[in-house]
Design a protein around this nucleic acid. Structure first.
Lengths: 149, 149
DNA sequence: AACAAATAGATGTATAGACACTTAATGTAA
DNA sequence: TTACATTAAGTGTCTATACATCTATTTGTT
């Protein structure tokens, strides 16, 4: 559906203004679908993202601030997300011996299990959400990377 | 900056997965800039959006549910956003005479003043955020509209 | 007219984002 | 080595999203 119908707005000031609104609307469209998918696993999209970052470490610990750097939303709060995941038994926290200000985070077996289950059912989800062909997706990625300067 | 460097992730499962992550990351990039801009005016991006919807009515009242339909985030809560704007004196609420379940919302002079001030300083903001030329922005809008099916 | 279903809006609660601030540990320089 | 600045993490507070539920109307059906 064209953005104009989706938000019942006849026209935009210019294509740049439409692009801003289009990006915000499309993000909401995606997150809504992701929430529905993650909910049965007891995870929010951001919690999933943190787990995914931890799995990417392949067994090596990572500090809270390094998680923060890798998060999609730089203004988010890795500290509290990690706490939520710890309460669910999906991560463990260990004091870093070389610098006691830092806290090492590791994904647990349970966390890996949940990610694997998710991963099995996730196949094709991204492709189902994005109604574009291969060439168009590549084009979109190029434009988004360029957009941010 | 390429997404890979921005979130320190070497590679993605496929271009569709990268596109999902790219859209979420880019939205956060935009909202961060918008927050900075709106803050001096005492508005959040969503509150601004509601005001903009009301101004688009050109003096005609609009119900809470119609505002909801026009919002970027369909899962948001127009009722509470309107309440926030009312507390700031930027909108008024009137019981709808033809259907007492409904509530008519109107933007006030003060609300219009804030929007006008904003609008004056806003010139070029969208273009400053989006580092694309005219042709590329049009292309992006086409792809986003198509993406959602 | 009576009553169930549907609708509009408000509200409650959990999670997350934006941003300031605190505390503890480390680094640095007089 | 003491003093000050910096850094890592956690916390507090406000706003917003996600989603369920509640209340007051209105509508539709019999």
């Amino acid at each position: 559906m064209r953005l104009e119908e989706a938000i019942k707005q006849k026209e935009f000031k210019d294509p740049y203004n439409k692009a801003i609104v289009n990006l915000l609307y499309t993000q909401s469209f995606i997150v809504t679908k992701q929430c529905t998918f993650f909910k049965p696993f007891g995870l929010s999209p951001e919690q999933y993202n943190v787990l995914r970052i931890l799995r990417g470490q392949k067994g090596n610990p990572i500090t809270v601030s390094s998680i923060q750097e890798r998060m999609l939303n730089k203004m988010s709060n890795a500290s509290r997300l990690v706490e939520k995941l710890k309460q669910k038994g999906m991560v463990v926290r260990e004091e870093c011996p070389s610098d006691r200000r830092q806290v090492d985070i590791l994904i647990t077996e349970k966390g890996m299990d949940v990610l694997n289950q998710l991963h099995n059912q996730m196949n094709g989800l991204d492709k189902a959400i994005i109604q574009l062909n291969e060439e168009e997706v590549d084009q979109l990625n190029l434009l988004l990377d360029k957009l941010r300067g």
